[in-house]
Design a protein around this nucleic acid. Structure first.
Length: 234
DNA sequence: GCGACAG
DNA sequence: ATCTTGTCGC
């Protein structure tokens, strides 16, 4: 596997985290670079209400490609290194997500992350962070914006898109994946170009707002939380 | 200083 | 992210 410097996983403070994020962003590639895609995994986390210091439950939910046959998911429950801080989500959830992905029977060829990719203040959204740590191609698919603004008007039809621009740079797209529904925000994570990231998401959506792998990962993460909370009669 | 702020 | 029920629309 690749080098995973300690400060990429658990930096001592937010200042150091910012420096680490610039390193990670620099290590990320924004061109397509993958061979045969046999499995695609969605990743997501779940946690208890208002318990930012409690355990987080991460899940990786793979599907076969092509065909989108659902494969067995993997999950893990751990205490995150830091609480949630806007702009630093990767440090909070990436370690758990990495562990969940490594529990899969097969190493995925593509990851779909519930969160931002390049549309991040330091171009290091959770999708970039996870993709670089695992050195697996990744795409960020977020439900709301962290930074930047949508340029122009977003059309009403599935597949319509409008650039997401931050400080003069096109970092992603607002993408309509379902009619009369709020768009999702797509960004490159690692080793996937922005245009193909959008294509992948549209091919994984099936008339729903979110791509199938993310829906499966969301469910699997919630299952892990339910199991964790019931397996202890506190 | 003020407002904004993925999951 | 999280708590929570019904209700409206395709």
């Amino acid at each position: 596997m690749i080098d995973r410097p300690d400060h990429w996983l658990a930096p001592p403070d937010l200042k150091a985290a910012s420096v680490a994020q610039r390193e990670i962003a620099e290590a990320a590639e924004t061109v397509d670079r993958f061979g045969t895609v046999a499995t695609i995994a969605g990743v997501d986390t779940s946690m208890k209400w208002r318990d930012s210091r409690g355990p987080i439950h991460a899940a990786a939910a793979p599907i076969a490609w092509p065909g989108m046959v659902v494969l067995p998911a993997a999950s893990i429950s751990t205490i995150p290194p830091i609480p949630y801080v806007p702009g630093y989500l990767g440090f909070r959830e990436a370690p758990a997500i990495v562990a969940a992905v490594e529990r899969l029977e097969r190493r995925p060829d593509l990851l779909v992350v519930d969160g931002q990719g390049r549309p991040h203040p330091r171009r290091c959204g959770s999708a970039v962070h996870v993709g670089v740590l695992l050195d697996i191609p990744s795409i960020g698919c977020a439900k709301t914006i962290l930074c930047g603004q949508v340029e122009g008007e977003l059309g009403p039809n599935v597949g319509d898109r409008a650039p997401l621009v931050d400080r003069g740079e096109r970092v992603g797209y607002a993408l309509r994946t379902r009619p009369k529904t709020a768009p999702v925000y797509i960004g490159s994570g690692h080793r996937v170009s922005l245009d193909s990231a959008v294509d992948w998401i549209l091919n994984l959506t099936e008339g729903r707002r979110l791509p199938l792998p993310i829906r499966l990962a969301h469910d699997a993460a919630n299952d892990a939380r339910r199991d964790y909370e019931s397996a202890r009669a506190d």
